[in-house]
Write a protein that binds this DNA or RNA. Sequence first.
DNA 1: TGCCTTCATGTCAAATTCGACATATAGTTT
DNA 2: AAACTATATGTCGAATTTGACATGAAGGCA
Lengths: 105, 105
Amino acid sequence: MRKAKRARLEAKGWKVGTVAEFLELTPEESALIEIKLALSRRLRERRQKRMTQAQLAEKIQSSQSRIAKAETGHSSVSLELLVRAMLATGASPKEIGKAIAGDQK
Amino acid sequence: MRKAKRARLEAKGWKVGTVAEFLELTPEESALIEIKLALSRRLRERRQKRMTQAQLAEKIQSSQSRIAKAETGHSSVSLELLVRAMLATGASPKEIGKAIAGDQK
DNA sequence: TGCCTTCATGTCAAATTCGACATATAGTTT
DNA sequence: AAACTATATGTCGAATTTGACATGAAGGCA
């Protein structure tokens, strides 16, 4: 993983911190974070084409602030909220699966 | 969806209940439940080949009871726990993505 | 039969995640 | 400049999800 990505993680509350701390993440922990970040990015792409954060929030009875946090990869956002938001943009399970698998768009 | 599947959902605490109630689920809500159930099934398959529920639980600092609930599709189990458990069986993000996409094994 | 292992299910206090709200920043329009 | 729109960020009480624990059920086996 590149340094720039680590810095992004660190800023959002993921337990990354120093390089040493980062290396304490198991591969499974890293994979989970990567999955969530991949969904965050894909969510933003899809949502921006279709609606505002406030509109998406309304669709899933959430709030604009949570959508913002979801798209910026905040650690307080669950995988579940990310997937619900993806579905609300019209993404199919197949598209979500691809994003999680790391497929390029 | 077949009646048998609905009955399974109903038994596990998903807000399904009667047929009428079931029909009140939006397609997005249904898709999310299907995703979780697909992961439950895949988790059981993979875990059984490799270890007991107690051993898997230890790997992710969870408990045997939560693994049992994850595999039986209990509504109290988060997508996040399902994915963490899948990763702990050695599943790659790609394999998890396939399961979510609905690919047959 | 009793013993052992594995899995299922219910409960509960603690931890996490939630939606809501306030507010800040930035860009656009008038 | 002021007003308006979209997004980001912090906080907080409420809701959900958690691991832990107890216990039951089912099967294998001595």
